[in-house]
Design a protein around this nucleic acid. Structure first.
Length: 657
DNA sequence: AAGGAGGGTTTTTTT
DNA sequence: AACCCTCCTT
């Protein structure tokens, strides 16, 4: 019996190369996920215990999908499943087990982006860097770049190239100190601290090296230095490493991803076998033509010959509208006709865009046309003020030392604990080297604080302790407890105060309901639920709460998402909107170097190759930004993908102003 | 301590 | 246009 019925010869070769380093250069739509799942099945078939196989994916969603595929292929209920995880969830697992040697408690909190920003703000205030020199975002970006390069706070100064870098290096150290004091870890720390463990504690490393016989990495083109070092450490003893990726789809350079890792894989791992997947089963020939013509304008790539297996007479369309409103109106009008008159399922249609500011108009139009839609990514559910507030309550309950969250809620809703009181508490906390939370009782008893404030503080402390006990004692009833907490602090009134329009109030009130529902869903799927486990999950999953929503709609909804979040997905009908200079390529990249433009080009390439059957590219001749209307030029990529590419070199020199 | 007015800034992309 | 911070008044 043929165990690999659905595979072509290249895929087969990749699946059957089970020992030593393997590089699979897989173009868009060539079935790389299938290769990885079949490979796991083959490994198991040849006797590798499933739990000794590690597959790393880029997103939690991809991990879940792969788990499902693997389960299907391996015949449903297996006791030991292969370990399929993202880098971040893999690192969390390792850290929970090992982190005490680094001086953190095993139940460390994980700071999400909002928390990071608050922490960065505080550090900047403490350092009192000149006004305007740094914004929290700038600082975090620098810190993140160091962390992704595997550089710890102690060495950052050595890698500083300008005065701002040196300042950032100082801030980095303080930032790390404050995280540690809060027993918290940020997203990048998950990788960096694991790396530190592996570097400094050989016995820890070898413990984890012995766990896996075979390691596979998906989307390898988006690996950063820290991730590379982690992988290299894990497979050092056996080099049974299979990486799958496409250098033309590397779109995370700004996050430290380095295409060099996939380009130099063969020289790093000697004896690497290379397999190319060049049969594209996803896109029509017309779509693939456009994509190929565009990407040819990039230099220094693994040249590939993607072969289309689907032909059509339906060409790629290029549309132009006077402004962004007309763009949205027309695209949605067309979608409406497709859905109502030609029975196109709404779930077949996807609108892709570069920035998160773009979808608003499309949302308005879709609502007006009474079409279902799901906005994936964008302003995340978890970024909304009311959600952040309530999550901060949960975080303080789960991790009392979490200062960022405590500061957020100590006077929200207002309860008479003003800035003066908070300042006194902070001062004492610093002086006594203790956490803000721990310092409250003494501050009250030593009469440092006015009677009125002291009473408010006491009530606040009593409230939290009471709920902490409730969450601890009956974890199964966490959703009800949360509901009670929301009622007791009267967050309803807070929303009424915050938003004037009754409709807005309703909307935000519903958001809170959704939070409770998300907690309920967690309770359903978790065997031994706990508050901190829920918080960890929502930090790691982040925006994917929205994906859940999409599943609930049973796929019958138009999807809106950024080009970045479309990576790895495919859709029947794609509208790629806003193909204009300063949007795609984005202004920030135009101001940057050639490499930045090349990455934008790859981003456009990713967008185009998401489309299976129909692709429409649109642009607006003018666009409003910050309240001002400005003319916008067609994206240079439009010219590139439509040119016949007679002279590649010339095309590379084109620099429209 | 709270709330409101006014002013300045902001939007790249995300695990 | 949305958000945040700061300052001012109560």
């Amino acid at each position: 019996m043929d165990r690999l019925p659905k595979l072509n010869s290249a895929q087969r070769e990749a699946v059957l190369t089970l020992c030593g380093p393997l590089l699979v250069l897989a173009g868009a739509g060539t079935g790389k996920t299938r290769v990885i799942t079949y490979r796991m099945a083959e490994l198991i078939h040849r006797g590798t215990p499933p739990q000794r196989i590690l597959s790393v994916t880029f997103t939690n969603k991809a991990a879940r999908e792969m788990q499902e595929r693997a389960a299907r292929l391996l015949g449903g209920q297996r006791q030991n499943k292969p370990f399929i995880a993202t880098f971040h969830s893999l690192c969390v697992r390792i850290l929970r087990q090992e982190i005490t040697v680094l001086g953190y408690p095993p139940n460390f909190a994980i700071y999400d982006r909002g928390d990071q920003e608050s922490a960065a703000r505080k550090v900047l205030r403490d350092i009192r860097i000149g006004e305007g020199a740094f914004r929290p975002g700038d600082l975090l970006q620098r810190i993140s770049r160091w962390k992704m390069a595997g550089i710890g706070p102690a060495h950052a100064a050595d890698f500083s190239e300008c005065d701002l870098d040196s300042l950032a290096a100082v801030a980095y150290r303080r930032y790390q100190v404050s995280l540690r004091a809060a027993a918290a870890v940020d997203f990048d720390d998950l990788l960096l601290l694991t790396l530190q463990l592996f570097r400094e504690f050989p016995q820890v490393l070898s413990r984890h090296q012995r766990r896996f016989d075979s390691v596979q990495i998906d989307e390898y083109q988006d690996t950063n230095a820290a991730q590379f070092e982690l992988v290299e450490a894990l497979v050092r003893e056996h080099h049974n490493l299979c990486v799958v990726g496409d250098d033309d789809q590397s779109i995370y350079g700004w996050r430290g991803a380095d295409v060099a890792h996939i380009l130099n894989f063969q020289s790093y791992f000697l004896g690497t076998k290379v397999v190319r997947l060049e049969d594209n089963y996803r896109c029509t020939d017309k779509i693939l033509d456009v994509a190929n013509r565009l990407i040819k304008h990039n230099r220094g790539r693994h040249e590939k010959q993607l072969r289309a297996h689907k032909t059509t007479s339906d060409g790629v369309r290029f549309l132009e509208f006077p402004d962004e409103v007309a763009e949205a109106e027309n695209v949605v009008r067309e979608i409406n006709e497709l859905v109502r008159k030609r029975d196109t399922p709404q779930g077949d249609i996807t609108i892709l865009f570069r920035t998160n500011e773009q979808p608003r108009l499309f949302e308005t139009e879709l609502r007006r046309a009474q079409l279902n839609y799901v906005l994936l990514g964008g302003q995340s559910f978890f970024d909304r003020r009311e959600i952040r507030d309530m999550l901060a309550y949960l975080k303080v309950l789960a991790h009392p030392s979490d200062e960022v969250s405590l500061l957020r809620i100590i006077n929200t809703p207002v309860r008479g604990i003003g800035t003066t009181t908070v300042q006194k508490l902070l001062h004492r906390a610093v002086k006594e080297h203790r956490s803000l939370w721990a310092v409250i009782p003494q501050a009250i008893s030593e009469a440092e604080i006015s009677t009125k404030s002291a009473a408010a503080l006491n009530a606040f402390r009593e409230l939290l302790e009471r709920y902490r006990r409730a969450f601890d004692r009956t974890p199964k009833k966490m959703a009800e407890t949360l509901r009670a907490l929301i009622a007791e602090i009267d967050y309803h009134a807070e929303i009424q105060k915050q938003y004037k329009e009754p409709q807005q109030q309703l909307l935000h009130w519903e958001m809170l309901d959704e939070l409770v529902e998300s907690l309920e869903r967690y309770l359903e799927r978790s065997a031994s639920p706990s508050l901190s486990d829920y918080l960890e999950e929502s930090a790691l999953n982040g925006r994917e709460e929205e994906a859940d929503k999409y599943d609930q709609l049973e796929h019958d909804a138009v999807r809106l998402m950024t080009l970045h979040s479309a990576k790895g997905l495919e859709f029947h009908r794609v509208y790629m909107v806003g193909l204009e200079e300063s949007l795609l390529p984005h202004q920030r990249s135009i101001d940057g170097n050639e490499a930045a433009i090349a990455e934008e080009r790859r981003l456009a390439y990713v967008g185009i190759t998401r489309a299976k059957d129909h692709l429409t590219l649109t642009r607006a001749a003018s666009r409003k930004k910050w309240g001002k209307r400005r003319a916008s030029l067609p994206s240079r990529f439009l010219f590139e993908m439509r040119s016949d590419c007679a002279s590649d070199d010339k095309a590379n020199d084109v620099q429209p102003d």
